[in-house]
Amino acid sequence: MTRILPWVATAALALAVLLAGVLNPVRPASVRTDALGPDNGEPVQDYLGRAGVSLGERGPEPSWALVSFVEPVDVAAVAALPGDLRVAHVLFRVPIDRVQTPLVTVAVSAHPEALQRAPLVAAGRLRGPAAGHDRAARIAAVSADRLAADCACAVGIVVRGTGEQLREVATASQVRAVEALPSDAVAGRFSVRPLLPEHIDTVAPGPDDGQP
């Protein structure tokens, strides 16, 4: 009898662990894979195609979407876009020939002044790391100066609107693509990568041998 007890105890322990797993399952990690924008290395035409499909699928429920521009625009042009969309983020990137400049994303409130002040906010974020004399510091400093001067440097915006509103903004001449997420996507739980104006054939970094 004493030889059997250890096996009984082991079996009982295994059963207890199994029941604990069934009654108290491990909750899945809160990870969302929603993303807006093209993948690195993706052909531009492929991205434009799937962005168009996503836009056609949206109905009356509001959705988050990425608007990418043909050329960088200023915030006045953003404010003048059709569709009466709620602009939530502005993505700034100062265009300098053959220079990879930093992408700065600025959240804006619904107040019109927040959108107007967004370039100054972006410039302020670049002022901190701009100290120094290396190339990266010079690029940051030049970018900050141009943003502070209200340059045409917005390469994309994240907006929220109905399918009808999003399709209306897609008709604007300065808009290159509008990609929409499903209506159940949660704010702050998706990544954003703009389709840059210099992305012509493939989404890939351009040359970075110019002078700021």
Rank of each mutant, 00 (worst) to 15 (best):
E113W: 03
A123R: 02
T10E: 01
L13T: 15
L196R: 03
R135M: 02
R189K: 12
A152G: 07
T105H: 01
D84I: 04
R98A: 07
E198P: 06
V159Y: 09
D150P: 00
P95G: 05
D208S: 01
V169P: 09
G156H: 06
L81E: 05
T101R: 05
R138N: 07
T162F: 02
F190I: 08
R127C: 00
R50F: 13
D145R: 04
A29T: 12
A154R: 06
A204S: 13
V22Q: 09
E71L: 05
H199S: 15
A204D: 13
L81Y: 04
G49D: 14
R98S: 09
L115C: 05
L181N: 13
V104K: 00
P82K: 04
A114L: 09
I157L: 02
R135L: 09
L48T: 11
P207M: 01
G52M: 07
V155H: 05
Q100D: 13
L19D: 12
A79K: 13
L120E: 13
G21S: 01
I4R: 10
A140G: 05
L120G: 09
R146F: 03
S63F: 10
L15I: 15
P25G: 00
A204R: 13
R167F: 04
R58Q: 15
L115W: 04
Y47V: 11
A204P: 02
V192W: 09
L81F: 00
G52P: 08
R86V: 14
A29Q: 12
A136K: 11
V44D: 08
P212K: 01
S109T: 15
A118I: 15
P205F: 07
V31H: 03
P6M: 02
G132S: 08
V94S: 14
A180R: 03
A118T: 13
A140C: 02
F92A: 10
V44E: 08
G37E: 10
C151P: 03
A88H: 10
R27E: 15
V108N: 04
L196P: 01
E113D: 12
A65N: 08
G56A: 10
P60V: 14
A107F: 04
E113H: 00
A177T: 15
D84Q: 11
L166P: 09
A144E: 11
A11P: 05
G49A: 12
R98M: 00
S30R: 14
P182T: 14
V31A: 10
P72E: 14
L19S: 13
I200K: 08
R193K: 04
G128T: 15
S183F: 14
A204M: 09
G59R: 11
V44W: 10
V169Q: 12
